[in-house]
């Protein structure tokens, strides 16, 4: 697992729901490249064309609230997002992100400490977040051992395969 992720930040407010992250009318798409084209379309139509591998999504509370659609994680991952930092997450979105190996980190104060375009570095193992543009540093809430174990395995699918001896 890559424990340090560095990229430019895309910053959003509170209660960004999964309809904004991935609109319902595209749920019949199943291939990640197709799904990636609509990333954040309901909140930020420029996101999909500007996001580069390793970039970081930053948000206030309850990021990913709403529906159970795993597409909301698939689209961010396929668009290149390396980590998501928020004050809190919608619980299904959080599970989906961890299951697919996309670090979702609760980091108090992060939304106010980062502006769009700032370069942010996240050390998942150490639980630290650094804003390289402003010099600010923040402490993230530690991920539970259970969740860290899923991430270390590269997501839950490889972990289950391993447990089945595959």
């Amino acid at each position: 697992m890559q424990t340090t992720i560095t990229g430019k930040a895309f910053v959003y407010g509170a209660n960004v729901d999964t309809d904004q992250i991935y609109p319902g009318r595209f749920l019949d798409l199943t291939d990640p490249e197709d799904v990636a084209r609509h990333a954040m379309e309901g909140a930020d139509p420029l996101f999909a064309s500007q996001c580069a591998p390793g970039d970081v999504v930053v948000a206030a509370t309850n990021f990913g609230c709403g529906s159970s659609r795993e597409h909301a994680v698939v689209t961010l991952k396929a668009a290149g997002v390396g980590a998501i930092l928020a004050e809190s997450f919608g619980r299904i979105f959080f599970r989906n992100a961890i299951n697919l190996g996309l670090p979702a980190i609760v980091c108090p104060g992060v939304q106010e400490a980062v502006a769009r375009g700032d370069v942010v570095s996240v050390d998942i193992a150490a639980g630290t977040v650094a804003n390289k543009t402003t010099g600010a540093t923040l402490t993230a809430q530690p991920l539970s051992d259970y969740v860290m174990n899923i991430l270390r395995n590269g997501g839950i699918k490889p972990m289950i395969r391993k447990s089945l001896g595959l």
């Binding site: 159970s68 795993e70 299904i92 599970r95 539970s144 089945l164």
Partner: peptide
């Protein structure tokens, strides 16, 4: 409780799922 597709697939494989 609601879950995403991969969590549900874990139930299909193992019959179980983790919860906090």
């Amino acid at each position: 409780t609601g879950v995403g597709a991969t969590d549900l697939a874990i139930i299909l494989v193992t019959g179980k799922l983790w919860f906090r």
